[in-house]
Simulated scan of single mutants.
Amino acid sequence: MPAVSISLRVLAGAIISVLTISGCQTLDDAGRVIGRADLVNDLAARLDRSNELTYSADYQLPGGQNASISQTQDPLRAAYTYPGGKLTVTADATTACDTSTKKPTCTLTAPPAANAKPSVTIFTEVNKRGLVTPPVVIGLLTAAALDPDAAIRQYDTTVAGRHATCVEVNQLSDAPAVNFDACITSEGALGSFTGTLDGTELEMALSRYRDAVESSAFDLPAGAGLVDRRAAEGQPPA
């Protein structure tokens, strides 16, 4: 998700710096901190690599529902499809579509500024509809690494036939999710997530991964009404 993703190498480096500068750590504390920093570094590096990939990932949600994440590099863009909606992020606009009504509605707002620190708030509605995005998971992992009271367990598994590294986090404070379980594949795709995020119970698992994206993945829903707010935000429509 290139246009909206966190600069993960910088983030991971900052986490390690924060966790290791304290002069009040015992040897046990230092060992625990280093383990968390290494874990975040590994998972952040995988997600960072995925930002350079063109791929599409399909997810199975509870109740037989589905969601997907698609990303290309040329042109740089990403699309998130979930029950009742779709979010696309391109160089021209961030477009949030509500497909839960008979006539879909899409609202266009300004895209994330180049090299600006992104905000995960654009994924709020996505989370509510059942799809968790990589930047949100990175935020939770960061919170876990910084929380000395959080219980973190790492394990390996296979998701959709692909190896994945997972973390089970419990007793997390001052974060949108207190307890969660997340898996990331070797390619860097989000393999699965289970947890309660901002009061919404979420469960998703990768069902299919491809190193290609159909162009239709970025199309707006057929017959959708458009609301363009970019001019009001100081950006002329493309």
Rank of each mutant, 00 (worst) to 15 (best):
T109R: 13
G35M: 12
P236M: 10
I122T: 12
V40H: 06
Y55R: 03
G161N: 11
A44I: 01
R9Q: 06
P2I: 07
I152Y: 09
C183Q: 01
N115K: 15
L47K: 00
D181S: 10
T185Q: 05
P104N: 09
D38S: 14
C97F: 03
G84A: 13
E201S: 15
C166R: 08
T72R: 06
V120T: 15
P75L: 11
T107H: 04
T81E: 13
G23H: 06
G223Y: 11
A205N: 06
I34N: 10
T200A: 15
C183V: 04
S68V: 07
L43A: 04
A224N: 08
T124H: 08
L146H: 13
A113S: 14
G130P: 04
Q25E: 10
G223D: 09
A145M: 12
N66H: 14
A232W: 00
R208T: 06
L19E: 12
P148K: 11
E214Q: 11
D228T: 06
T94P: 01
A205L: 01
Y59H: 05
N170H: 10
S173C: 03
V167A: 15
L39H: 07
A160G: 05
L61G: 09
R162D: 03
N51D: 14
A151W: 02
A164F: 02
A110K: 13
T133M: 05
T90V: 06
L27Y: 01
G191W: 01
T101F: 11
A45S: 13
L146K: 15
I21S: 13
E168I: 00
T90G: 07
A231L: 13
A151R: 12
T88A: 05
D42E: 11
E187W: 05
Q171C: 00
A205E: 12
V10Q: 09
I21R: 15
L226N: 02
L47R: 01
I15R: 04
D28N: 12
Y82W: 09
T200H: 15
T81V: 11
N51T: 06
P134D: 08
I69S: 04
L141C: 07
C183M: 02
A67T: 04
A143P: 11
Q65H: 09
Q25P: 00
P237E: 09
C106V: 06
L19H: 02
R9H: 05
A189N: 12
T142M: 14
A44N: 08
P104Y: 09
P135R: 02
V227P: 00
F193P: 02
V169S: 08
D92V: 07
A57C: 07
N127G: 08
A164Q: 02
M204T: 01
A232F: 01
